[in-house]
Amino acid sequence: MSDELLRTVVKAMAQMISAIDMTTDDEVDPDLATTWFEDVAAQFDGLSDEDRRGLAQLFRQVAAGETQLRLREAMMSIPESFGLEDDEDA
């Protein structure tokens, strides 16, 4: 798998997670969003510590390139929100 493919998939996932996270309760049912996020977190939990740290770094890299402040901030919160790193890893 190429680095470009991996980065593109991570960016798409970050944009999707952030878009869902930034919706109102009227736009997306909070229980449904929670279920989606729990499913994603469960997949991430299956990764090795090294892979979780690498994925966290990729999320931060794609977030850093985001020009919309609100979206960038939401994307930056993904590693911690999804348990990809401990506080001292950030």
Rank of each mutant, 00 (worst) to 15 (best):
M1I: 15
M1V: 15
D3Y: 08
D3F: 05
D3W: 06
E4V: 12
E4Q: 12
E4S: 14
E4F: 10
E4N: 14
L5W: 10
L5E: 14
L6H: 11
L6E: 14
L6N: 13
R7P: 03
R7I: 09
T8H: 10
T8Q: 07
V9K: 07
V9P: 04
V9G: 08
V10Q: 01
V10E: 02
A12R: 07
A12Y: 09
A12K: 07
A12N: 11
M13Y: 09
M13N: 12
Q15D: 15
I17V: 15
I17N: 03
S18R: 01
S18L: 05
A19R: 13
A19L: 15
I20C: 11
I20N: 11
I20Q: 11
I20S: 11
D21F: 06
D21V: 07
D21T: 12
M22G: 12
T23P: 01
T24Y: 06
T24M: 08
D25K: 11
D26A: 13
V28G: 02
D29A: 10
D29V: 09
P30A: 15
P30Y: 13
P30W: 09
P30S: 15
D31V: 07
D31E: 13
L32A: 12
L32T: 07
A33I: 01
A33S: 05
T35Y: 02
T35C: 01
T35W: 00
W36Q: 02
F37I: 02
F37Q: 01
F37H: 00
D39N: 02
D39M: 01
V40A: 04
A41S: 10
A41Y: 00
A42E: 03
A42N: 04
F44L: 04
F44A: 06
D45Q: 11
G46W: 01
L47P: 00
S48A: 10
E50V: 15
E50N: 15
R53F: 14
R53K: 15
R53Y: 13
L55V: 04
A56Q: 02
A56D: 02
A56T: 03
L58Q: 01
L58E: 02
F59Y: 04
R60D: 05
Q61A: 06
A63K: 00
A63C: 10
A63D: 01
A63I: 05
A63M: 05
A64Q: 08
A64M: 10
A64T: 03
A64E: 07
E66F: 04
E66H: 06
E66C: 08
T67W: 07
Q68M: 09
Q68K: 05
L69Y: 08
L69V: 14
L69R: 10
L69A: 15
R70C: 13
R70T: 14
L71H: 05
L71Y: 04
L71G: 05
L71R: 06
R72S: 01
E73R: 07
E73W: 09
E73M: 14
A74P: 02
M75C: 08
M76Q: 08
S77N: 08
I78D: 00
P79H: 06
P79D: 09
E80T: 06
S81D: 06
F82D: 00
G83A: 06
G83K: 02
L84T: 03
L84C: 08
L84F: 05
D86C: 09
D87N: 10
D87G: 11
E88Q: 10
E88W: 11
E88P: 03
E88D: 13
D89L: 15
D89H: 13
